[in-house]
Every structure is written in structure tokens, then in C-alpha cells.
Amino acid sequence: MANIPQEEYIFKTTSACAGCSSSLCLRHILKAAGPDSVLVVPACCTSVIQGIYPNTAFNIPVYNVAFAAAAAVASGMSTALRAAGRKTNVICYAGDGGTVDIGIQALSGALERGTDFLYICYDNEAYSNTGMQRSGGTPLGAATTTTPGGKTEGKKDLDLIVEAHDPPYMATACSAYPIDLYKKVEKALSIEGPTFIHILAPCPPGWRYPADKTVEMGKLAVRTGMWILYEREHGQLSISGPSKNAMRKPLPIEEYLEKQGRFKNIDQRSITVLQQQVERHMARIAREAEGIC
């Protein structure tokens, strides 16, 4: 067990939905980061969760910025802080829309420039803050308010895009595995330069499952291989414990899909495509972990 600090930076007064996994993640992220940290937040659920002026539920400086701007704001902030000799952690906490869609240019630029910051994308696979519209992060077959018949395209592979920038550290995580997340944040912040963590963050109202099933949903994502936990440090990939176990004998993806209302009307063909993608992805990650790629 990691020695997780008792200090709380997120108070129980957030306006998060019941069963919200992204605020749960942030709680552990900030415990790992400690008080000398600034959070840069573009438009996303976290813009609202922190509370309404003049109150805030976060006991850490939070810089709210425009949707497309998080990584660029962090670039300026980190550069200015380092120039002033300050080690303050600069952490972007952005949703999938603000990362894979409108914010991808700023993220790419900041990664390419070697900005000393940690970018965390909490991926709930839709524009949840505006009421569940399709994003580039929405998986094939998932119903959203703008894909009522289910999304006909696949999920954009953010991790491949980030990997192409060759950051010194990148990892995936999931809200159902907070200690794994905690350790990855700690490691990311110990490394100079651009670091990146991609968190799968199940969302009860968006994914249409009961609020008390958030942990179960995250675990199923990992056990079916729909989500693989790994980290890549200086190009060296290692699969994290829960996924190592899951990948030995993954559950069929139906066990994950059938518990979510958003996949209620998914057709068999899409399920087959998703299953094939999952298998290809697992095989690719396994090969890379063994150094064959």
C-alpha cells in the first residue's frame, strides 16, 4: 500500500454528480501532488465541480481557462514559474473533449516544446458537462445526445498521439484503481518535462449506470481489456498489475457493455469490431511490454 497523505485538497462540498469518478481521481491526484501545485482547468466537469464564486471546494490554486487553452496556459505558467526559480507543480486537469478534440493542438504544442508540466486527461468519453454529446473519445456504438443511434466511428487513440511526441513519461489509469493512479502521479511529477496521464473516468449519468457502480464499471473496463493500465517511462512500457492479471484471461467485453445504458442498442457487428479492437490493442501493448515492436 502506498502511504497516501491524510491531507484533503478537495472538500466534500463539490457539486459533482453522485458517483462521479473524476472528482474521486482528482482527490488522489492532489494528495500525490501536494500543496505546492497549481491546477489548470479548461472548460469541463471540473469547472463546475469546484463550486460557485465566491466559494471553492478545492484547497489548491485552480486556474480556470478557456476550452482550447489548458496546455498553452500551463506552458506559460510553468515557464514563468521555472524562470522565477519555483518548482511548483503545474497540472492540467482536462476532460476528453478539451484534450482529444478542441485542446489537441495546444496539448501537442506543449508536449513538443518540452513544457515541464503534467497533463491529465480524465476521459468520461463524451462532453459530459454540456449534457453528454459525442466527443472524439466516445467509443463505437455508444449512444450520446448527438449520436442517439450509437456512435458510428471509433474512439480516437489519444495515447498513440501523445506517444508520437515521445514524452519522458506517460501512463494510463482508471478511477477504480486509486493507488495505481496515486503512484503514477507521484512518478510523473518526479520527472522533468512533459508528462501525461490518461484516466478512464466512468460517468453514471453519461454512461447510464447506477451511481454506486462507478468502481465496478472501472474494474470491468480493465478486466475486459477495454482499458489497459500501463506506463511508459523514457520509451519503456510496463503493464500495470491489474491489467497484467486481466490480460491473462480477459472477460468478454459484453460484460462491460451490457451494464451501461449507452450501449443498450449496440448491434452485434459493432460488438465484434470492438472485441477485435480490444484484442489487437492488448496484443500490441503486450508485444511492446516484451520489447517486440
Binding site: 487553452a69 496556459v73 506559460g76 505558467m77 515557464t79 514563468a80 493542438q105 501537442s108 504544442g109
Partner: peptide, 20 residues
Amino acid sequence: IPVESEHSAMAACIGASATG
């Protein structure tokens, strides 16, 4: 900071200026 767009130029200035 050699940013990748003008939107990011102003964003980076905002991030820097916010630190004083």
C-alpha cells in the same frame, strides 16, 4: 516560448502573467 498558434500565444501569456 515558441507557441504553435496565436490562441496559444495569448494563452501562454495568460499563464505566465497569472504568476505575476
